[in-house]
Design a protein around this nucleic acid. Structure first.
Lengths: 185, 185
DNA sequence: GTGCCATCTTGTCAATGGCAAGATAGGATT
DNA sequence: AATCCTATCTTGCCATTGACAAGATGGCAC
């Protein structure tokens, strides 16, 4: 809402979110420590509580940011295939966001701002699938979107989990395009 | 039922693993507490450490069990489509196992027993794809397997995360079969 | 019976999340 | 200007947890 004003710290809320992204990339979202974030930002251990209430509050804000960022990436994609590639690219590039977004037990899934952001992501995904040049029924479009989402999401999470064999290569975009094509053909 | 014995539990290792499955279904694998498991099993707070070393040790054992269980489900499937359905069914039915298996930051991914079990799962998956009646090259088979794995894994994780819209229905097997068919056609 | 050893307990410590109460600062009200 | 107001941040505290160390227990080999 109101822009960050220069108080004691200046921009603590933003600084904590940025520190959280770094920390999550290092230790994962579950092992995130509010006190560690406070240390990184140079404030006392209870400062984060004021801005986010508790750890779930901070992760809720992070997840909402993530869904918005993802929505932007998806609407900029040219077609369904590239939207899928963009999805995987987002997951790998913004790993911290992605890992929080799909772990609703870590945040408040009923948060209004978060639900809105998630809805924007979903709409972007569906609109990409709807532009497919097939005379499919709407119900089929739903399932097509779900299939596209599933394969992109699955590849992304498997990549992040390090579960894929080495021969897949080290470029997630290329490998993802190769895999996603199998659905779109 | 074997009540809590005076000193030696009798089958503490198994009891702790069973308690861990319950606890993970309740609070997720990250919020798992060794001391809580000890209380559930009626032993002292340090007893789990003897059997598993630390929390990662316990989750390593759980993950290995899970990969073995999954491998069994996959080899019993008739074709690729049903293997995918079995994969999703495993994730939903044995949610606790599944949630640990693909979170390697929680356990020791270099554990020998775990690697062996994971390899058995992978082999079961690939062998299903290889039986497809297509004159595809081996390299294509690899990619086909990866695509099948991705879409099944993606659907399963999205289902578990509660990310899917309600109109997908409440039966994961039926919905999964509908989605997976889009790859196999 | 004796000794051995896996099993389990008790005790302890640092780290964490969360709460409560207080301190601080910048603007608003009068 | 003096005072109030409120968001911001600090200090202090407590229960819980993971991990470690040292000791207690009991089954089992000999």
């Amino acid at each position: 809402m109101t822009g960050p004003r220069a108080y004691h710290h200046g921009d603590l809320r933003r600084a904590l979110l940025a520190a959280a992204l770094d920390a999550i990339e290092e230790v994962g979202p579950a092992a995130l420590s509010l006190r560690d974030l406070a240390r990184r930002a140079g404030v006392s251990h209870a400062a984060p509580a004021h801005h986010f209430g508790d750890k779930a509050g901070l992760l809720t804000a992070l997840a909402a940011q993530g869904f918005d960022l993802l929505a932007q990436k998806l609407v900029n994609a040219d077609d369904v295939l590239e939207a899928g590639v963009a999805y995987v690219d987002f997951a790998v590039t913004h790993r911290a966001y992605f890992e929080v977004m799909f772990r609703p037990e870590l945040y408040r899934a009923d948060d209004a701002e978060l639900i809105a952001a998630r809805e924007r992501s979903g709409a972007a995904l569906r609109s990409g699938v709807a532009t497919l040049p097939t005379g499919a029924a709407p119900a089929d479009t739903d399932r097509d979107a779900l299939a596209a989402w599933s394969i992109a999401h699955g590849f992304a999470t498997l990549w992040l989990a390090g579960a894929l064999p080495e021969r897949v290569g080290d470029d997630p975009r290329t490998a993802a395009r190769d895999v996603l094509r199998r659905l779109a053909r």
